[in-house]
């Protein structure tokens, strides 16, 4: 299989829950061997999209192919190709870690030896522990292990690090990278910009059931008005005045600090304006835009707005 053939192809996908249209025409491709992020606010349709890729949901219209297979029509083939860690999916409360791994091993024809996998994911000391006595991070590691046991070609990880402490998040990220490095393609659902920036090779941003942007994290940052400047104006000034400066995307006030987002050029123009007004920008900081900012720009911007209409 050449690199030109995407592993996952979602074309014009629409999914409804009753009257609510959760996904309204999403198209995306996941290349073999990448970590692909699906990023968006809560309720954007991310989970509905990946559940359709896993074959758990039937599309209302549009098509989904995983390695050429329609996962809704050929469930058995799909379960062999795709490993899934679903948001908030639990296990039987009194099931022990080792028992869960052994059970899952019995469900697949050619599983990864589960003790080896448990060691890789740091579960070897927890094999006798019941599921309901695991911490959030331990549950997620077990979930990843179960998703990987069947040697899937694609693994879907939904909201993997939500609710984890920083150390557990970092450990989990490392596991995701190792999974990719071992040749499994990863489709990662997240609303954490930091996570997408640190982990993903490519990102698709979904807002309101539609694709807002797609590309590498670097491309997304570059395409946004992502330079941030922050200062304490002395004397105080009406921040709305800065909105009119060319290249400024957004101005907000936080605890007496003024935060201006915009192009590199806008930073210089804002400084000129402040100088002309005799306002001193105290504790001035200028930082490179993060995906965080790019994402907020993408999500907040009405789809039809033209740059000059933005504030």
């Amino acid at each position: 299989m050449g690199p030109a053939v995407p592993l996952v192809e979602v074309t014009e996908l629409c999914v409804s829950h009753g009257d609510l249209e959760a996904v309204a025409g999403v198209s995306l491709t996941v290349e073999q061997g990448e970590i692909h992020g699906v990023l968006g606010p809560n309720g954007a349709g991310k989970t509905s999209t990946v559940e359709t890729v896993a074959g758990l949901r039937r599309p209302d219209s549009g098509s989904v192919r995983v390695a050429g297979i329609d996962p809704a029509a050929d469930r058995r083939a799909a379960t062999r190709l795709v490993g899934v860690q679903l948001q908030e999916a639990q296990l039987q409360p009194k099931l022990r870690v080792g028992e869960a791994l052994a059970l899952w091993s019995a469900l697949y024809a050619d599983p990864v030896p589960w003790r080896e996998l448990a060691g890789r994911l740091g579960l070897e000391g927890l094999l006798g522990r019941r599921f309901d006595r695991l911490s959030g991070g331990q549950r997620q590691r077990l979930s990843i292990a179960l998703a990987l046991l069947g040697r899937p070609t694609l693994v879907i990880l939904d909201e993997l690090t939500t609710g984890l402490d920083p150390e557990a998040r970092r450990d989990t990220w490392q596991i995701v990278r190792e999974t990719r490095d071992r040749g499994t393609t990863v489709l990662l659902v997240t609303h954490s910009m930091e996570e997408a920036q640190l982990l993903c090779d490519r990102v698709t941003v979904i807002v309101g059931g539609r694709v807002r942007a797609t590309g590498t994290p670097r491309e997304l940052v570059g395409g946004a008005d992502a330079t941030v400047m922050a200062f304490t104006p002395e004397p105080a000034l009406d921040p709305t005045e800065l909105s009119a400066v060319a290249g400024v995307a957004a101005v907000r006030c936080e605890d007496g600090r003024v935060l201006v987002t915009g192009s590199d050029e806008a930073v210089l123009l804002v400084l000129e304006r402040l100088h002309a007004r005799g306002v001193r920008p105290g504790r001035l900081r200028v930082s490179d835009g993060s995906l965080d900012q790019a994402y907020l720009d993408l999500v907040r911007r009405p789809e039809t707005a033209r740059p000059e209409e933005r504030r």
């Binding site: 795709v82 679903l86 999916a89 639990q90 039987q92 697949y108 069947g150």
Partner: peptide, 16 residues
Amino acid sequence: SYRERGIVTRLRTTPL
């Protein structure tokens, strides 16, 4: 409770 906790959904992602 298996349905509520997503245990059923998780099993549906396996060949079983």
